[in-house]
Simulated scan of single mutants.
Amino acid sequence: MKTFSSIKELLTVLNREHKLIIALFEKRKNLSYKYDHALELVDFDEDKIRTLIDYSVIRENGTNLELDDQFLQFFEQVLAVNEEINVSYIHEHIQNIKHNILYYLQENNETRKYGYLRQVKNALRKIGIIALRNVVDLNRNIDHAFKHEPNYKIKKAKLEHLDEKRHDIYALIGQTDQLISGEDEQTFFKVASDEELNRIIIILKSQLNECQHNLIDIQKQIIEFLNRIKYHSGVIEKLRQIKYLKDQFTLKSKTNILEILAENNAVIFEPNPAYPLKISLEVLQTDNEILDLIGKISKRIRSGVKVTQPLAGSISDEYLETQVEEEFQINLDEVKNGFLAGSNNLFDFILNYNFDKEVNFDERITIYCQMVSQYDSLFKITETYNSRQDVEFAMIYPK
């Protein structure tokens, strides 16, 4: 296994094969990424894939490829998309702070003392960030487990496991708070106090306070989800028993389902009510009040004025003549294909493009703007500008 000799070499290799690395990272949830698909992203150069394998950037699993765990965890942590909750990081940083505080108090050399102080600052800064990230990941995992896990037993087990993670995070937050206010640590903070350390402690206390409030809400959410799972699992179990008795044709004999249904007056068992708008003939014939109302309405609507509708005049023969109007339209897609096939910049290409009709300079500027707004993802827009006839434009080339 090869190792990178410098950061420059590491960044060069990652940047050179960034398309393949991005594809593997985006497909990290899939069980496999075919070797043949990876070849397409490296221009069918197997040496590039072999280089990544030799440096342990990616791993080969039969005919499949996947990112190495070390790089996968690095990308997930930097991009804040890691779903794994790891409280051991906080515990390690707490122990690291205690050791470096002890070293600082026992050290006489100012340079080495500053080194220990710097490590304490870095660890304190990381604890707050890791705690907040773990709380966010915990909340997301709880929501995902409840909404997407179809098996009720597994769903309950996952939520109980995440509740244990919540308890661990809460305990580590308490240890961190105690670390800041401990007797030995208070001596250190008084001796090594500076502006940056005080600012880090204030930010850390704010972050821990935010985490504690969020953990209280998460605890309520877990309790609610577990109660809902218990209720739904009980309903499903009863439905399974009813279905079993029904399949055995013993539902009526072994249960009192008929009595329960007879006593149940739930709206769901009632037929949908119908509300007819028309009045029945029987009511019209027997109810005198309705007849009087109809008579009053008829008197209001009735009018003695007879309205005569005027006749329309004859249609002129001019309106009956067929007229054809031709309109010339420019096919921007065809212009785009022609531009992508060449290497000239977009403005000069449109300026010299041979359209089917005469297109003046202002119209060609309009076509240039339309092309940029519709096909910008296919163009390489540079920061270089040029001008032509008092018009300044960006230099755009095909990708």
Rank of each mutant, 00 (worst) to 15 (best):
L79V: 12
V372R: 15
R302D: 11
Q248T: 08
Y319A: 06
S56F: 05
D194H: 06
I154M: 11
A145C: 05
K29E: 14
D43P: 02
F71N: 04
L258W: 04
L215E: 00
R118S: 14
E263P: 01
N331D: 15
A145K: 02
D43Q: 09
E60G: 12
T3M: 00
T3P: 02
L258E: 14
L138D: 01
G295E: 15
K155P: 01
L159M: 02
K147V: 09
P273N: 06
Q370H: 13
D143Q: 07
K29C: 11
E60S: 12
E76A: 06
E270M: 12
S387F: 12
E334G: 13
F349C: 02
N122T: 10
T176A: 07
L72H: 06
D287T: 03
S314Q: 07
F71P: 04
Q219K: 03
V359P: 03
Q178S: 13
E46C: 01
D54L: 09
D45Y: 07
Q370D: 15
E270H: 11
Q95Y: 02
N345V: 03
E326C: 09
R140M: 09
V372H: 08
V135C: 09
V335E: 01
A171F: 00
G174N: 06
I154R: 13
V78G: 02
L172V: 01
L20G: 01
K34S: 14
